[in-house]
């Protein structure tokens, strides 16, 4: 039996009044304990796919299975198992952070330890402030608490580090990695390739409603990169030599440079997810 948490087969979706499908027959699956990244430019269909998987959008064609059972067959109990972190703040601005969290907490049968989670992400001391007094970063961190509120088994996160400083982004990423280590599964939507590279076991690139690539970041980088080593050194002037990695151990020039020259830099031809994103989706990254 497959350990797939979600299996999606030929999924198609068109918004009402739209002639063209936003999602054009995509297929993928992700398993227990996996962080699956869904990457693509704005308007590619990332959020729509997420909305389909969390049952916010319903009239789709194709098949979506959750733990082997048709997603459409699940009732509201499905939402006790999943946690959703939205891209935009989703809280009552005139209530305090704690009032917001306590209200939503009561709607679930199972809870996480809110106090320790809020302490860890630095919101506990601000728990009695109204949301209208929160900065964007604080609101996003509270969104993250909201997503983990019901101690979910599957986490859907839409740009979880958006608007966060590096310190807080680090904390959020650490918690996501710990969630996976504890057996949790995550579906991560982001345009930050560095986050995807760091967090995801596998990523799918989506563009114009179609999946263009699915693989682990490492395999993608090997596949799209070059098996080369580029050496920059000083020899009276600045010199650059590029060597084929597969024949490197027999290359006398390489070893001669290593032994006798003043090296400035050495780079492998491995590419980055940013470059792959641009190649695969045909869209340049911004910000």
């Amino acid at each position: 039996m497959s350990d797939a948490v979600f299996q999606v087969q030929d999924l198609r979706f068109a918004y009402p009044r739209n002639k063209e499908e936003t999602i054009k027959g995509i297929s993928f699956e992700f398993s227990q304990g996996e962080i699956f990244g869904f990457l693509g430019p704005s308007g590619a269909g990332k959020s729509t796919t997420q909305k389909l998987l969390i049952k916010m959008l319903k009239d789709y064609k194709g098949q979506a299975l959750y733990r082997g059972k048709d997603l459409k067959a699940y009732g509201k109990e499905f939402f006790s198992e999943i946690g959703v972190g939205f891209e935009m703040p989703v809280h009552f601005s005139k209530l305090t952070a704690l009032e917001n969290i306590e209200f939503f907490k009561r709607l679930y049968p199972r809870h996480t330890d809110v106090e320790s989670l809020m302490k860890r992400i630095g919101l506990w001391e601000h728990r009695n402030k109204k949301l209208s007094e929160y900065s964007k970063g604080m609101k996003m961190r509270l969104n993250f608490v909201r997503a983990l509120l019901n101690d979910p088994k599957v986490l859907f996160l839409d740009e979880p580090t958006n608007g966060l400083d590096p310190h807080n982004a680090r904390i959020i990423k650490d918690i996501i990695l710990e969630f996976r280590a504890a057996g949790g599964t995550a579906f991560l939507t982001t345009h930050l390739m560095h986050d995807a590279d760091e967090l995801c076991d596998r990523v799918a690139f989506i563009a114009e409603g179609e999946i263009r690539e699915i693989d682990s970041p490492k395999n993608l980088k090997l596949r799209f990169g070059q098996r080369t080593i580029t050496v920059e050194y000083e020899d009276g002037e600045r010199c650059i030599e590029t060597f084929d990695m597969t024949t490197l151990r027999k290359n006398e020039l390489f070893f001669d440079i290593m032994r006798t020259k003043n090296l400035t830099t050495i780079h492998s031809g491995e590419t980055t997810l940013d470059d792959i994103f641009i190649k695969v989706t045909g869209v340049k990254l911004h910000g």
């Binding site: 916010m56 006790s80 939205f86 935009m88 703040p89 709607l107 679930y108």
Partner: peptide, 18 residues
């Protein structure tokens, strides 16, 4: 209207309430 403007309704939609 308040709930819509603050995107809170989306949060309701992913809870076990119907």
């Amino acid at each position: 209207v308040f709930e819509t403007q603050e995107n809170v309704l989306q949060s309701f939609l992913v809870t076990p309430i119907n």
